[in-house]
Design a protein around this nucleic acid. Sequence first.
DNA 1: CATGAATGAGGTTTCATTCAT
DNA 2: CATGAATGAAACCTCATTCAT
Lengths: 218, 218, 218, 218
Amino acid sequence: MNTDAPSLPARRRRKAERPAELLAAALEVFAERGYSAARLDDIARRAGVSKGTVFLYYANKQALFRAVIETAVLPHLAAGEALLAQDEGDPEALMRALFAGYWRVLGDPQLSGIPKLVMAEAGNFPEVAAYYHEQVVMRGRALFAEIHRRGVARGVFREGDPALLCQLALSPLLFVCVWRSSLGGCDAGAIEPDRFVEAHVDMFMRGLMPAASARSSS
Amino acid sequence: MNTDAPSLPARRRRKAERPAELLAAALEVFAERGYSAARLDDIARRAGVSKGTVFLYYANKQALFRAVIETAVLPHLAAGEALLAQDEGDPEALMRALFAGYWRVLGDPQLSGIPKLVMAEAGNFPEVAAYYHEQVVMRGRALFAEIHRRGVARGVFREGDPALLCQLALSPLLFVCVWRSSLGGCDAGAIEPDRFVEAHVDMFMRGLMPAASARSSS
Amino acid sequence: MNTDAPSLPARRRRKAERPAELLAAALEVFAERGYSAARLDDIARRAGVSKGTVFLYYANKQALFRAVIETAVLPHLAAGEALLAQDEGDPEALMRALFAGYWRVLGDPQLSGIPKLVMAEAGNFPEVAAYYHEQVVMRGRALFAEIHRRGVARGVFREGDPALLCQLALSPLLFVCVWRSSLGGCDAGAIEPDRFVEAHVDMFMRGLMPAASARSSS
Amino acid sequence: MNTDAPSLPARRRRKAERPAELLAAALEVFAERGYSAARLDDIARRAGVSKGTVFLYYANKQALFRAVIETAVLPHLAAGEALLAQDEGDPEALMRALFAGYWRVLGDPQLSGIPKLVMAEAGNFPEVAAYYHEQVVMRGRALFAEIHRRGVARGVFREGDPALLCQLALSPLLFVCVWRSSLGGCDAGAIEPDRFVEAHVDMFMRGLMPAASARSSS
DNA sequence: CATGAATGAGGTTTCATTCAT
DNA sequence: CATGAATGAAACCTCATTCAT
């Protein structure tokens, strides 16, 4: 309320920023430790507030967890859908843009904690898993399927089950993001993520070509 | 393990099986819930013993966790190494055999909990992560690298960074095993793992061919 | 209390009413929930102010509690004492007037919360209990004793320990006020308080007659 | 289980006694402090166990509270019902026996905490209140009503609404039990409970006589 | 060996109280 | 004066761990 006054009292301004600060701190700790092992004390401290303050913004630990999951990914998906809706260009370029978009999210060390979290905790939070599946997985697949459909129509992509192809396309990206926040520490330098993804995209795009055009690839 | 003495009294035989039963139960519960959320009560009940008995075999929860990780994968790796050491045949067939071997492990709903566990808990157990990286990841990569080396030498595989190619080869398999024990419940039927892996292997093998032989692919 | 200045600005009048509004809200919540379970948040909301405001008027929760107890009953006692001081009439009528006066207080759903509160919380607030005993119980008993004394002197009441008779006289009234705010909800309609008190007073007055005049009762 | 062996291990014997010990300790603390203010720490310490042990026997504080209420009164009611079922004697003597029975319970400093508790906490535990009303209040009233019915049939009691008469009969007893655990401390010695109850019963029985026989009373 | 009752440290959650605005 | 965001002590509750039987 009344956020158009540039001279808002500092307290009030804090209040507006608190949820984001808390979500950021919570994402960090949840991703590092997992849901159960994450202590609200740590989250609060990392957000620069006391333990009790967390409960002013989120009813309990679970609600905070859900909020972390729900707010971190949706904007990016919406952006992807918007892009696809207005761009009618070359499917191959679109597909590469889709990869780039996914990678902007999954490659961000901050956001890459989310998929890891969801996978690690799906068993304990079936509702969260269902929400994520519906709001992220299905919508992400729909994006892929639409581009693939356009490519097949123009004869630049081979046919195939879009769900399966999508999984094939994304699993290395997802894997890399999980890897980085788990064994990445031990494996430092072994593989540079950007190069890895680049290699995968090349390989995948080549595999997606119709048989006839395969010979012309590098 | 020591099952070659058929005349042992039932009680003693029971005792010899306890560790394996405990590890199996622990793997189940750890994989379902994650380390922190797993209760020793549940593990004990699932193994058919009382809570106190667990401590007769493993000093504490952490030791049990380490034992689960350490005993579940090593035999399979050793088998792979033995196979490779004696087989000098067609690299392409060997590579497909390697995929099949990996899939025998990662496709097993029982064992597929392990990678998920390691990734989810690496942050909380750096030593376990380091152990796993050294004893599983590096050795697995070495298997791949050796086959790749032979294939390049014979001109049937294109060159490339073997670590990167190995990651590329395995990430979909690892991903599928993680997926199945997380969002798989919501995603039931969307993708059949075996088909998915088969498609990936085909695609990967095609991508691995030298450019010249690509045209002969299906 | 200071309502005799009709031209005060509204704000100032508001302020003058605050303590009474707070006490009323506090009485409600304390009576409903008990001292510990009553939240200052609820009291503040019911009084239409913010939580912080409560502390402008009362140093802490305990002080508010004491104020509730102390201000709610004293005026009524004083009124009873004044009445008795000026009225020299028929002791039987006075006794019935005393019952009526008690019932005006104890029958008021608002005020009936007080005795319940005092009894429920006496263990946690010995000083409050002592204050209540001295300022309410003892003075109430003195009223009864004085009327009884006059009646005995005129030969219309039988003799007896006034403290005991007073307890006997009042316990059903007190009980009904406690009952109504506790099990009254389950017991709705079973007994109508006014009828109950009327029956008790009749029975008590009959029991208070000297033996000789008993036969003339209805 | 297997409690017929006199040489049971001490641990096992403790296990059998724990619930009763816990209920006794809990009744004490709940009655002294009220539900909210009672700390499980105190209850545990008074029962001679640690905090965690309470939760081995009762799922949570509320369950313990319910168990206290439910187990403390029922046996006495059942005893009263049994007595009434087999005794066909003088209704006046039966009524005095009923008073004596109630007083055995309500006069016991231990058990007298129960009614106080129920009344103080009814607002916070509607289900407990309903249970108590159904299992204690209604059954208690039925006992009274049956004796009253017999007395009216024989012409030794005057007619009247039994529910109202029962309330009238019991309210001083209930009040005394509440009083003793609340303001009784301040009021020490003012009134001796046994004398008070005796006086009440005499007065009540006299009030219960039909008008004709009133003159023969002492 | 095996049990399971008991423990108590540690986590989540509540709420009276403070204080900058 | 009034607010309500922030605090942190204290409560409930969980569960790994111990140990008498």
